[in-house]
Design a protein around this nucleic acid. Sequence first.
DNA 1: TGACAATAGTGTGCGGCACACATTATAATG
DNA 2: CATTATAATGTGTGCCGCACACTATTGTCA
Lengths: 122, 122
Amino acid sequence: MENVKQAEIIAGLAQELRRGVVVLAALSQLDEPQYGYSLVSQLGEMGFPIEAGTLYPLFRRLEKQGLLESLWDTNESRPRKYYKLSSMGREVYERLCEEWAQLVDSVENLLKGKEGEENGNS
Amino acid sequence: MENVKQAEIIAGLAQELRRGVVVLAALSQLDEPQYGYSLVSQLGEMGFPIEAGTLYPLFRRLEKQGLLESLWDTNESRPRKYYKLSSMGREVYERLCEEWAQLVDSVENLLKGKEGEENGNS
DNA sequence: TGACAATAGTGTGCGGCACACATTATAATG
DNA sequence: CATTATAATGTGTGCCGCACACTATTGTCA
C-alpha cells in the first residue's frame, strides 16, 4: 500500500512549499497592529491555517530581527501583545513581495509546456 | 549600520521562500531523464540556481521515496546517473502543482489591497 | 604529464516549522 | 462561590531539509 505513503509524501512536500511563505503571509497582515491570537484565526479564515505555536515564535524572531514592533495593550479585558511592521519591516516586506513575484514567475516558467499531454484542459 | 543586516535578512527570507520550491522545480524537469550535473546548470540558466550539494541528496531522497527512478549510463565518456520521474512521481508532481497553484492563489489573496499606498505603480 | 572540468557523493551545521505542553486570567455557568 | 471553558501567550523538543564545504574519480586538453 504505497498509496498511504504517497499521501504523506505529498503532505510533507506541500508543507515544505508553504514553509517560507508563512513569513510573507504574516507580514502582509501586519500593516495594522494585530496580536497573535487574532492573526492565527484571520489567516486561518483566509485559507492559510497556521499553528499558534508556529506564529508566536515567528513573531518574536521577526521582532528580534527588527521587522516588527510590539506593544502590550493592557486596557482590554485580557492583555494582548500587538505587533506591527516597523519601517524596516515594511521595506523588507516589499522586497519580499518582489522576490515572491519573481519566484512565482520562474516557477511558472519551469512548469510551462508540461501540461496538456495527459491533462486535458479545455 | 542595520542596512547590512537588512540585506542578509532579506536574503535569508528569500532563500526560505525558495526552499520548498526546489523539489517542484526539480520534478518539473524530470519528465525526460537527466543527470544531476546537467540539471544544476539547466535550472541555473532558467533563473533557479541550485547547489550541486543540494541537488544530489535531493535526488537520492526522492528516489528513496519512490518519486524518481535512476539508471547509470556508462556508454558516454563519463558515467552519468540519469534520473527521471516514476509513475508515482508523476502523480505526486501533478498534485504538487495543484498545491502550488493553490498557494499562489492564497498568497495573492493575502497581498491584495496592500499596494498602491506608497507604491506608485502606473 | 599536469591541470582543469565534468560528475557524483557526503556529512555537518544551522535554522525553521509543527506539535504538544505549560501558563495566566477572564468570562460563563451551575 | 466554585468550576470549567476559552482567550491569549509562551516554550522546548524533534524532525527534516537545505546550504556549504569538502572529497573522490575520471576524462580532456594543453
